[in-house]
C-alpha cells in the first residue's frame, strides 16, 4: 500500500517537473543534431544603420532579448496595424532594460537614416530602446527569411512590397523563440507573456 502511495507521488512530481519544462519557450525553425549536439535555427547576420546613424550588427544585440518586425515607412497596407502592436509591446517593456525592439525597413532606398529618425520621433519612442534599421535591400529581404518573414518586391502590391506582418521574439543567442501576427491585436498578449517568460529565464540563470 505504501509502495503504491510513493509510486503515485513519484508520478505526480514527474508530471509537475514536465509541466515546468513546458514553460520554457520552444526554439522555432529547424533544429539539426551535429556530433550529438542540438543546433537551433538562428537569425541571419546583418550590418545595418539605426535611426541615429550608428552601425549595428548581431553582436550589438547579444546582451538583449529583442522583438523584431519588418516594415517600411511609406507602407499603406498592414504596417500601421503592426506598428500599433509593436507600440503596445514597447509600452509594456519600457522598464525592462533587457528588452529592445528592432524594426528593419525593407525599403532602404526611401527609408534612409534621416527618414527613420523622423519616423521614430513622430512615433514618440526612445531611440535607445527601439531601433529602426536600414541597410542593403537584398540583404534585408534575405534576412527577413531567417526571421520567417516573407518579404519581396512586388510592383502590384500597395507601396511596392509584399511582406507578412509577423512580430518575432529573438533571444540573446539569435534564436527565434516566439512570434505573433502583428495584424491581429488579439495575438499581442501572448507574445508579451512570452517576452516576460524569456526575460525571467535569463534572470533565473544568473542567480
Amino acid at each position: 500500500m505504501k509502495l503504491i502511495f510513493y509510486y503515485i507521488l513519484g508520478a505526480f512530481s514527474l508530471l509537475l517537473v514536465s509541466c515546468k519544462n513546458n514553460e520554457t519557450l520552444p526554439y522555432l525553425g529547424q533544429t539539426v543534431v551535429e556530433n550529438g549536439k542540438e543546433i537551433h535555427h538562428k537569425v541571419g547576420q546583418f550590418s545595418h544603420y539605426n535611426q541615429d546613424s550608428v552601425l549595428m550588427d548581431n553582436s550589438s544585440l547579444s546582451e538583449y532579448v529583442y522583438v523584431a518586425d519588418f516594415f517600411f515607412t511609406s507602407c499603406p497596407s498592414i504596417c500601421p496595424k503592426v506598428a500599433k502592436q509593436m507600440l503596445r509591446i514597447y509600452d509594456t517593456v519600457q522598464d525592462e532594460p533587457m528588452v529592445k525592439l528592432v524594426s528593419f525597413t525593407i525599403d532602404p532606398k526611401r527609408d534612409d537614416v534621416k527618414k527613420l529618425r523622423l519616423y521614430a520621433d513622430n512615433l514618440g519612442i526612445d531611440h535607445n530602446k527601439w531601433y529602426f534599421l536600414t541597410g542593403d535591400k537584398e540583404a534585408t529581404l534575405e534576412l527577413a527569411n531567417t526571421y520567417f518573414v516573407a518579404a519581396f518586391e512586388d510592383a502590384d502590391a500597395p507601396g511596392g512590397f509584399d511582406h507578412s506582418g509577423k512580430i518575432l521574439l529573438v533571444d540573446k543567442d539569435g534564436h527565434v523563440r516566439s512570434f505573433s501576427e502583428g495584424t491581429d491585436p488579439e495575438n499581442t498578449p501572448k507574445i508579451i507573456e512570452d517576452i516576460k517568460k524569456l526575460v525571467a529565464s535569463y534572470k533565473a540563470e544568473n542567480k
Partner: peptide, 15 residues
C-alpha cells in the same frame, strides 16, 4: 481601420 485603427486612436503623431 487599417490606418486609424478599430478604436479610432490612430498611430502616435504619424496617423
Amino acid at each position: 481601420a487599417n490606418c486609424h485603427m478599430e478604436d479610432g486612436s490612430g498611430l502616435s503623431a504619424l496617423i
